[in-house]
Amino acid sequence: MRPSDVALLRQASREVRGAIRGAVSFAGLCDQGQVRVTAVAGAATRRLTSIVLRPSRGLGGRSWDTGQALAVDDYGASDDITHDFDAQILGEGIVTLAVAPIVVRSRMRGLLYAGTRSPARGPEMARFLEHQAGQVAHELDVRDQVDLRLRMLLAADAIRAVPASAAPGEDADAVLTPRQVEVLELVALGLRNAEIAEHLGLSVPTVKSYLRAAMARLHAGTRQAAVVEARRLGLLA
Rank of each mutant, 00 (worst) to 15 (best):
M1I: 15
D5Y: 09
V6C: 12
A7C: 14
L8R: 01
R10N: 12
R10E: 12
Q11W: 12
V16F: 01
V16M: 03
G18W: 02
G18A: 07
A19R: 02
R21E: 13
S25G: 05
S25V: 02
D31W: 09
Q32G: 11
G33M: 07
G33K: 04
Q34R: 15
T45C: 05
T45R: 08
R54I: 08
R54W: 08
R57A: 10
L59K: 03
G60D: 06
S63L: 11
W64M: 10
D65N: 15
A69M: 12
L70P: 07
V72E: 07
Y75A: 11
D79A: 15
D80H: 15
I81K: 08
D84V: 09
D84E: 10
F85G: 01
D86Q: 04
L90T: 06
G91P: 02
G93H: 07
V99Y: 03
A100Q: 07
P101C: 13
V103N: 06
V104Q: 03
M108E: 13
M108Y: 10
L111R: 00
L112E: 01
L112S: 00
Y113L: 01
R117T: 02
S118M: 09
A120C: 02
G122D: 03
E124L: 09
M125G: 03
A126L: 06
A126H: 03
R127W: 07
F128E: 05
F128S: 02
L129W: 03
Q132N: 13
G134A: 03
Q135P: 09
Q135F: 10
V136Q: 00
A137T: 01
A137Q: 00
L140E: 00
V142F: 08
D144G: 04
V146W: 08
L148I: 12
M152S: 09
L154V: 14
L154H: 14
L154Q: 15
A155E: 04
A155W: 01
A156Y: 12
I159H: 14
I159C: 14
R160Y: 12
P163D: 13
A166V: 12
P168G: 05
P168H: 10
E170H: 14
A174E: 08
T177P: 06
R179T: 13
R179A: 06
V181Y: 04
A188G: 06
L189R: 00
N193C: 14
E198M: 07
S203V: 04
P205N: 03
P205T: 08
T206H: 07
K208G: 11
Y210S: 04
R212V: 13
R212L: 11
A214R: 00
R217F: 07
R217I: 03
L218Y: 03
H219I: 13
R223H: 15
Q224T: 15
A226T: 02
E229I: 10
R232C: 05
L236M: 05
